[in-house]
Design a protein around this nucleic acid. Sequence first.
DNA 1: TTGACATTTTGGAACGTTCCAATTAAACGC
DNA 2: GCGTTTAATTGGAACGTTCCAAAATGTCAA
Lengths: 352, 352
Amino acid sequence: MSDKRVTVIDIAKAAGVSKSTVSLVLQGSPLVNESTRTKVSAVMRDLGYVYNRGAANLRQTGSKTRIIGVVVNDLTNSFFAELAVGVDMVVQSAGFVQFLSNTSESIDRQREVIASMREHGISGLIVSPARGTAAADFKPLVAAGIPVVAVVRGLPGARISSVLSANMEGAIEAVRHLATLGHKRIAFMGGFANTEVFRERLAGYRQAMEDLGLGFSEDLVIASAPSRAGGVDAVGRAMAMPDRPTAALCFNDAVAFGACDGLRARRLEPGEDFAVIGFDDVIEAGTAVPALTTVAVDPQGMGRRAAQLLLKQINAGKPEPETIVTAVRLVVRESCGAHRGPVDVEQMRKKA
Amino acid sequence: MSDKRVTVIDIAKAAGVSKSTVSLVLQGSPLVNESTRTKVSAVMRDLGYVYNRGAANLRQTGSKTRIIGVVVNDLTNSFFAELAVGVDMVVQSAGFVQFLSNTSESIDRQREVIASMREHGISGLIVSPARGTAAADFKPLVAAGIPVVAVVRGLPGARISSVLSANMEGAIEAVRHLATLGHKRIAFMGGFANTEVFRERLAGYRQAMEDLGLGFSEDLVIASAPSRAGGVDAVGRAMAMPDRPTAALCFNDAVAFGACDGLRARRLEPGEDFAVIGFDDVIEAGTAVPALTTVAVDPQGMGRRAAQLLLKQINAGKPEPETIVTAVRLVVRESCGAHRGPVDVEQMRKKA
DNA sequence: TTGACATTTTGGAACGTTCCAATTAAACGC
DNA sequence: GCGTTTAATTGGAACGTTCCAAAATGTCAA
């Protein structure tokens, strides 16, 4: 159809005004007369004008693009998909648009993606850092005055904001619940020790065990890959111990599912012969059999929070680092055995 | 730190060459001498230069931005999240970056989002249209020469490409499988008749029934919302029929899960007293109890295909509409009862 | 009529890049 | 040493917008 792009000058000519006036209309300036405004708007509609943000941005001092970058480490994980949706919701209604990229936990890819986003002139960045990300990687961004919000995983050492979940409190609550049910030997299963999230959840576990007078022992911390397979492996190691645990708080839901698989493979029923609690409350947690008792964090809410914080900082000019910790809550379902009342721990020990 | 953006001119000055030469280096032109190239590159690194794509794009004829827009109707649905990941994979490795937005099935939001993307100058668009999208909505895009690929749901009437799944073939295969197990009265449950996907799956069901000599009857087509609740509803209506079906092909997995719920509520066991087959193979399908037999479509693969097609069209200049149909395959698990061999249909009828 | 003031409008210059035509430098054949 | 080709470099004009200072227009009081 039209081979040439229609510009502000074309509009000006057709409406019989100057390009400056058209520009004023575009930005909704109160300086322009109402009658000319309507006239110009009509012409824009007629000619099918589309605003060229790139050109505008070029002139504008600083980067006033209304683009915000979102980098997540695993979008196939519904946790992060929900998070992205939360971000999108507030970003969209603020008239921004989001660049979304997936790093698959690759630091190289993360670097590439962020570089590419910078070239496009994002006005802010929300990132759930890939494992092993160094604080220094974000130095150039903050030096350029681009606000950055780390989400889910913090970035200690960097002067950037973060939106985290109350991992420690969640772990404490979960352990307390298991203790209420009568468990005394409670394991912490899954996850790698080199992540912030692991440290926090483990710290909560440790504190709860000590506060309850059950004592903390390294033996009951059984690290493994934070995956279903890792859960199977961990539960296997737990069962091989001389003084077996009767319950476990798992690093995340994937590990918890794996733990259930592993129990079944040994003819043990999760929630009956061994109590399992997960972390995150992924979608499948409610529909699995047995339904998983887990510490729910609200990824969509975190996404929204992160976006709000970022927008605030973008508007504020000078980004002042800030940390938000979002609450979590224990969702009691079946895998912890609570639906069948207090347990006879000795009985469970014997059977397992 | 640095208050002023470092530009190509700064580099030129520092390296003792002209800005044109720097530009040539930037685009990796073979015209520039190797020694100057290395010198210029070094200076760029030292000064922390970041390329300004916006400016470049302004000069370049047409919109050569390396941005592609991705619009999905429901990112919280893991099907679409997988699709987005597939797109991201190929888009990213081609040096593009993706704008991703979620419409939540709202046509208004879809319009806004696409308008915003146009302003930013996307060089192509992948869209899974919200329900009720009119072909005309994409007229301006294609008029402007921006390639568009519809994915999952086609957009009949518009001259745009699409990447669909073999819905009809999948439905045929599912019905055949149920027939093999001995079923004769097979229902088609769930979904609304006003969608393309519904029509295709239903068409497959119909053709298979006729080919197998089981006959097609409107009575056995039980429409409902394409959700879990819709499935419960549909199975209820099926059971109230005088001449009850003994099996059902469901519009999607959500409906199938709902059907299982509904059966259980009637003390019937899915896969034992009634055979259920879903469509899509969402993640939970494998872990549910009973594991769902379903027609698997590969969303990530579709995303990759769509992105490849789009990139091809972007490079080709004039986009020539093309339709790709991706294969599906029946994944036999437990909900169809196949794991217990051929069924005694009369027995099932009596029990239900 | 004139100046003072408020309200609208306007021409250029700028933003950071690419493209084009033109220039310079180097190398070659004779 | 001279034209001719080849290789490398360059200045300026675009691209579509916003910003600024300045100009036009209208209104009112003296």
